Simulated scan of single mutants.
Amino acid sequence: MDYFESVIKTLLEGEGYWVRQSFKVNLTKEEKRQVGKHSIPRPEIDLLAYKPSENRLLAFEAKSFLDSPGVRLSCLSEIHDIPEGKYKLFTCENYRSIVFQRLRQDLIDCGMGDSTTEIVLGLAAGKVYQSRNAEIKELFSRNGWLFWSPEDIRNKVIALAKRGYENEPAIITAKILMRQP
């Protein structure tokens, strides 16, 4: 289990989402051919977050990059005909369309969604290269995607300290760090 994903999962749950980690989408051989890679492994979505009151499903990627330069706008802005790189769902429209069609069918097959469930792509970034948060938010807004910047995540973690006690590492840590001396 990725601990950054676990923190983001806790934040999503705090906003009323039911969350599953590391969800593998079962592309068929034909769908793999359609995306241009017949031997591609099953796509794995870091977090699937479903909000029943809105019939909305977030397909959320979580990239901490805390001790690296961070998420790069240039990488998210690339456009590929065949999926490649770390951000395939963001940079290859054909791949995203096929993966989301199969995801919807997988969810219908296991009773976790229906044909009207809205699927929204999202990214939570622990660090952004050159602090280009505004530009990434604009790119995501234009595409109908959701972006949680490091500042958004920080504010959501701080808000955890105000919640009632739960035996959850992220909430306990937030309470310890935000406690006034």
Rank of each mutant, 00 (worst) to 15 (best):
S22F: 06
Q21H: 03
Q130I: 05
E78P: 02
T91I: 08
I45R: 02
R104H: 09
Q105K: 14
Q105E: 13
L76G: 06
P41G: 13
G122I: 11
T28F: 09
L12S: 06
E84C: 10
A124H: 06
R179F: 15
N155D: 10
D152Q: 11
Y50K: 00
E44A: 10
G16V: 12
S131M: 11
L107M: 15
A125Q: 06
R56Q: 14
W18M: 03
L160I: 02
D114Q: 02
R33Y: 04
V25N: 03
K127H: 12
G113F: 00
L66A: 12
Q101G: 04
R72T: 14
T28Y: 11
I98H: 00
D81R: 10
M178D: 10
F100I: 02
E93V: 07
G14V: 06
R179C: 14
P69Q: 14
V35Y: 01
K37M: 15
R132G: 02
T116W: 11
I79S: 09
V120R: 13
S68C: 13
G111Y: 10
I108W: 15
R132Y: 03
M1G: 12
E54H: 12
S22L: 03
D2P: 02
L160M: 13
V99H: 03
D114Y: 04
V157S: 05
Y165T: 02
R56I: 03
E13T: 05
F90C: 01
V128H: 06
F60M: 15
F147S: 08
A134C: 07
I82M: 04
L27P: 05
P181S: 08
A49D: 05
R142T: 15
K156L: 15
G113T: 04
P41F: 11
L177W: 08
I108C: 15
G85M: 09
R154Q: 14
P69D: 15
P83Y: 06
V71Y: 10
E84Y: 11
I108T: 13
E15I: 06
T10H: 05
E84A: 12
Y95A: 00
Y3W: 08
L121Y: 08
G126D: 09
H38L: 01
E31V: 07
P83N: 05
R42M: 06
N143K: 13
I98S: 00
L177S: 03
Y165D: 02
K86H: 01
S22M: 05
L89A: 04
R72D: 13
I136V: 13
L11D: 07
V128E: 03
P41E: 09
E61W: 10
L12N: 07
S97N: 05
N167K: 09
D81E: 12
S6D: 10
E31G: 08
T91W: 07
T91H: 04
F4A: 00
R154G: 13
E84K: 14
P169S: 12
Y165I: 06
T10R: 06
G113H: 01
G126V: 03
I98D: 05
V128Q: 02
A170E: 04
S39T: 14
D152T: 15
